[in-house]
Computed example of a mutant assay.
Amino acid sequence: MQRRRFLLALAGLAAVPASATEFAPVLPGRRLAFPADHGAHPDFRTEWWYATGWLKLPDGSPLGFQVTFFRVRTGLGEGNPSAFAPRQLILAHAAIADPHLGRLRHDERSARVGPGHADFDTGTTRVWLGDWRFELGPKGYHARIQGADFAYQLDLQPDGPPLLQGQAGFSRKAANPRHASYYYSRPQLRVSGQLTLDGTTRPVTGQAWLDHEWSSELMPEGAQGWDWIGLNLDDGSGLMAFRLRDAAGKALWSAATIRPAGQIGQVLPPEAVHFTPLRQWHSPRSGIDWPVVWGVQVGGRHFELQPLIDDQELDSRRSTGAIYWEGAVRALEDGREVGRGYLEMTGYGKRIRVG
């Protein structure tokens, strides 16, 4: 869907008419090329590097984590030669799903691209905002976050090449191919590093999923929000699935890709993907009812998704202007846990606003 980052309403900056700026189009047939496409694509309207996963403390206790960096071309100041003109913004979200606390610890930042504020590279993954960083090195990705009540430094090591979503990286979000993004994932990332909670730093290990996606299109007409999952299954495979839905909860477009261990990803048609909400959780802060337990059918497989904790609501109105649910989930098949990953839901309060 422009899956996640239709979130980028930009708190007013998206009020600049899209027609005033010529954003680069997403077109079928463009082949993603690496390592160049690990880097930023500043001619496009929005872009994000999005890592989510499960961590394990030395005593075996589980936690979830999220780190997201957004790059946004605002359409403002493009004729201004000043290095401080707000042509590009970087926004970032970070979170820890902490069962002992019973909710997310989370933080957010935003800044224009410029000296001393934030920046990105176009030849590789390297994006930073103040002392927050996400970058790709010879051995994998590295995330460094210092939040208000948590901090982490994590290394994320890929197990293989990028998983191209959709048609060789051209990921449609509607029947009209105009609504599309360039999109690839890195499932089954092996995680190690350090996590600081309540002033105590401990080593952690785990498993993660990375998405990198960029586009220039807004949400299709009639779309209220979306539901998305990225699952690392215990047999070594990776599964991504999403649906874009209307205000009544009806699917407008669905898609899925599964990559068996050591094999090429298999793209499934929209009719092979079904999301069914099974249980809701009512947020005492936003008043939103979030479906936190799901039945998901992908091809011939049926999964039940169970949250690590119900309260994984993230209020990002200070940066992206949205409230969304981003949470660690267990995947069960025939009552047995077969994998873990993350579930994202948007549009259950207000329709995602994008301009």
Rank of each mutant, 00 (worst) to 15 (best):
E47W: 06
T196G: 12
G349T: 02
H212Q: 06
S215Q: 15
Q157E: 11
Y141M: 12
R279D: 06
R103H: 08
Q88V: 03
D149T: 09
R190E: 06
V338R: 01
P277I: 00
F275A: 05
L233Y: 03
G339Y: 01
S283A: 05
N232Q: 03
Q312P: 12
M219Y: 00
A174E: 05
K139Y: 06
D131N: 15
A328K: 04
G166E: 04
D107T: 12
R133N: 13
P260K: 07
S216E: 05
G169H: 10
P161D: 14
G225P: 02
E221W: 08
Q157I: 13
A175D: 10
Y183C: 11
P86H: 02
Q312F: 14
V191P: 01
Y342K: 00
L55R: 03
G114R: 14
W294N: 11
G137Y: 04
T124S: 09
P162S: 03
A33T: 14
V267R: 15
I323A: 03
H41L: 09
G238T: 06
P115Q: 09
N176V: 10
D235W: 00
A148C: 02
R105I: 03
R301K: 15
W294E: 11
L195Y: 06
L210R: 10
G140S: 07
E337I: 05
M240T: 15
D149I: 01
A180R: 06
G299D: 01
P161T: 14
F23H: 08
H117K: 14
Y152R: 07
T257P: 01
P203R: 04
Q280M: 02
V127L: 09
V127Y: 06
T68C: 11
R336M: 10
F70G: 08
D198E: 13
M219F: 12
G116S: 11
P203Y: 07
A83Q: 00
R172E: 15
R279I: 05
P260M: 05
V67A: 12
G355Q: 05
G137D: 05
I288K: 02
P177N: 12
I229A: 07
L129Y: 11
F44Y: 10
H41E: 06
F170R: 11
F23S: 08
H282W: 01
L252H: 00
T125W: 08
L218T: 15
A18C: 07
Y50Q: 03
Q297W: 12
D234I: 03
